[in-house]
Computed example of a mutant assay.
Amino acid sequence: MNYNVDERGYYGDFGGAFIPEMLYPNVAELKENYLKITAEPEFKKEFDALLKSYVGRPTPLYFAKRLSEKYNTKIYLKREDLCHTGAHKVNNTIGQILLAKRLGKNRIIAETGAGQHGVATATVCALMGIECIVYMGALDIKRQAPNVARMKMLGAEVRPAMSGSRTLKDATNEAIRDWINNPVDTHYIIGSVVGPHPYPDMVARFQSVISEEIKTQLLELEGRDYPDHVIACVGGGSNAAGLYYHYLNDERVNIIAVEAAGKGIDTGESAATSVLGKEGIIHGSKTLLMQTPDGQITEPYSISAGLDYPGVGPMHAHLFRTKRAEFVSVPDQEAMDWGLTLSQMEGIIPAIETAHAFAALDVRKFKPNEVVVFNCSGRGDKDLETYIDYFKL
């Protein structure tokens, strides 16, 4: 079985492009050009140069000595939290801004939940001198104030989404409406492996630098270029897609995806799509989606602003359906506790999204000689207020 996208834009049963007629020219233009443009030597040269000199790649693959001793296995952290802007998101925004320039676009829109993608988009727009508008749920604006301030400092306009749960789903809805109204001059930088084809594949390709580097780094550290397990948190799933990408079809590597269970899977306040979702269409893609029996999207919940999405990227839906990946659901309390544990055991304060991934160590046993790689996808600066309130620091 092949776990990459096919020529129709599908991962098995999931994917495709279910879009309004008004958006068809935009999506068709991207689909016809993204592989051709990103394969050009000049594009690759500029992309690689910016990743190195601006983003700070390659990011380290760090052996977590104290964690490894406690859990009696070899634990490595891929330090995406050390990227410029504080998370993996910038890998994708660098790629998409270069693509947008080559397509002649002079206005950029984006959606954001935790704010990291918004900051990364505002950053590359400032770098390139291009107008930037970021849609963000009103609730997320309140709980991610530092990132909102960063976006504004970088020159972006932050527009609140006031509908629905006022979180990531609603911000995405607003961004799509904007794109429909401004189809000619605007490029929509989607921040995760969601949306209509070619976005899930395009974002995964830009994020695949993560697993590409791991192959080289593990060869040096362990004498082989593959780990036994790769583990990442999954909301829409871009950091996970980047971690898994070069190992999707390597059956020696076990893939573990960690979702946000919120206040509990059965509480009605959760974002555990693999458990609660069924096939549906959201934001132009067929995937697994939390919905009512009559097909209305249910509101997700997580203490983490980046994981409360009611669906999951089609790549991840396919990995779940085919059992290529193990899916684990982690409630708020365990994730928050792991934020504190990682801070105090390794001196790394993780984003709350990232903290979810480490809870896999409490539910899954690993052998002493196994190599386990976690994607440390973002740093916790943006979540300090939530940590302060939760732990009464």
Rank of each mutant, 00 (worst) to 15 (best):
G295F: 03
S329I: 04
G113Y: 08
C132I: 00
F206W: 11
H117F: 02
C132R: 03
Q207N: 09
R224D: 06
R66N: 15
V230H: 02
L243S: 00
L77P: 08
G15T: 13
L289H: 10
L127D: 12
G235R: 12
G191Q: 10
C376W: 13
T73Y: 08
L23W: 06
K36I: 15
I180R: 02
G95C: 09
D13K: 15
T172A: 14
A122K: 07
E353F: 05
V373M: 14
Y199Q: 11
M151W: 01
E111F: 00
I130R: 12
G313T: 06
G380R: 07
N249L: 02
V124D: 08
G295L: 09
T123P: 12
E259F: 14
L35Q: 14
V209R: 12
A360I: 09
D266W: 06
K36T: 13
R107N: 13
L307T: 07
K70N: 02
C83T: 04
Y247V: 04
L340P: 08
L35V: 09
M290E: 05
E111R: 01
P368Q: 13
Q207K: 12
A100K: 10
E174A: 14
K286Q: 06
H318W: 15
Y3D: 03
R150Y: 05
E7T: 12
M162P: 05
A257Y: 00
L288K: 02
N91W: 06
D140H: 01
L127Q: 08
K278D: 01
M290G: 03
D266H: 07
A114C: 13
T273N: 01
A149V: 15
D337Q: 11
A64W: 09
A49G: 12
T167D: 06
M345K: 07
T73W: 08
H229E: 12
V372Q: 00
Y76W: 01
K263W: 13
V119S: 00
T172Q: 13
G280Y: 10
L288T: 03
Y11R: 01
E212H: 06
N254W: 10
K74R: 15
A317Q: 06
T121H: 03
D201E: 15
G104V: 11
V330L: 07
G280K: 03
R102L: 00
R66L: 08
A120I: 08
G164Q: 00
D13F: 13
P314N: 07
V134Q: 10
T298F: 01
I97N: 00
K31P: 02
N239C: 00
A156K: 04
A156H: 10
S285R: 11
R324H: 04
K36W: 14
D228W: 12
L30W: 09
D6P: 01
C233Y: 08
D294F: 14
A360Q: 09
Y301L: 01
A175D: 01
F391L: 00
G223L: 04
H229N: 14
N92T: 04
G104P: 10
A360P: 04
G264E: 08
R205Y: 12
V148T: 05
G264Q: 05
Y247I: 03
I37L: 11
K65A: 13
I297C: 11
R143S: 09
Y76P: 02
K31H: 06
E29Y: 04
K142P: 01
P41V: 04
L154E: 05
E212T: 11
T298C: 14
F358T: 11
N91R: 05
C125H: 14
E370M: 00
Y226F: 12
S53D: 15
G347D: 05
P331C: 11
